[in-house]
Write a protein that binds this DNA or RNA. Structure first.
Lengths: 140, 140
DNA sequence: ATGTATAGTCAGTCTCTCTTACCATCGCCA
DNA sequence: TGGCGATGGTAAGAGAGACTGACTATACAT
């Protein structure tokens, strides 16, 4: 079953990152918040754009951003181009979160590289890119 | 980011199956219920075993099973070996759900086969199996 | 100038998972 | 064989995280 075969590694990565954040002291961040960091460019973005990229309602994204802001990971600044809008940006603490998450992901990837060997690993990664692009294109 | 690369295809499969069930008239089944069908052998299983396999509490599995039972997809029969226990089994309607789900999955797999070609597809599948096994072993 | 679209919030609901507490039964072993 | 810890399942309640609908303020096009 291809569904479970995709789910197991995905959940594994999620849990590894979550555990790494937890041991680094960022215990107020849950997997749901990954959607925010994942779609947030370094120079910030509007909440509605984040919501669209994460395929959720702006209210739901607002709920996640509000939490991360209250914990000091994000800040909202007024958008100079549009008085209705705000830009969501990482704080220094938020960038630290990203560093820890990246390190955890790199750890998993390193394990898989050892497991598969470099050729099979890079083929796997490129295949995932192909399939992801196909899946995203099909929905649009 | 390997996390998103795994998430996108996984969610795609999930949504395709969900949509297929919905158009086949099984609109009272949500992705959360997939965990039940996924771990339910043809001859049935105990709720606690299902919960363990799905990595959730027995109360949560009970919540899902109760819903599927009330919709006529599952039935509970007394376990002859243990008066505390019940066996959860599919009804005819439940087996019909499985058929529809399998067909939807086969459709996605067929698309990916066309996209990748047979060799790359089967390498991809085997790599997923390797990684899944590794991830599951690491947790245990 | 006016109407429509967009950014964001507020309030309420629903689903799904968790925890704690409990009952009934099982199986072991002193 | 009688008690006792382990196990199968339920009950009740809490909380996270998603949704919808209604609202305000601003932007933009006609």
């Amino acid at each position: 079953m291809i569904g479970a075969l995709l789910r197991i590694p995905f959940q594994h990565v999620t849990e590894r990152v979550h555990a790494a954040l937890d041991s680094a002291g960022f215990s107020d961040i849950s997997p749901a918040h990954f959607a925010v960091f994942q779609h947030l460019p370094p120079d910030g973005a509007r909440q509605s754009v984040l919501a669209e990229r994460a395929k959720m309602r702006k209210q739901s994204m607002g709920y996640l951003v509000r939490h991360l802001e209250s914990c000091g990971y994000l800040e909202r600044v007024a958008d100079p181009d549009d008085k209705r809008a705000q830009l969501v940006r990482q704080t220094a603490r938020g960038r630290e979160v990203e560093r820890v998450a990246r390190r955890a992901i790199a750890g998993v990837e390193h394990e898989w590289l050892e497991l598969l060997g470099p050729v099979r690993f890079s083929v796997f990664r490129r295949t995932l890119e192909t399939i992801s692009a196909h899946a995203e294109a099909r929905e649009a």
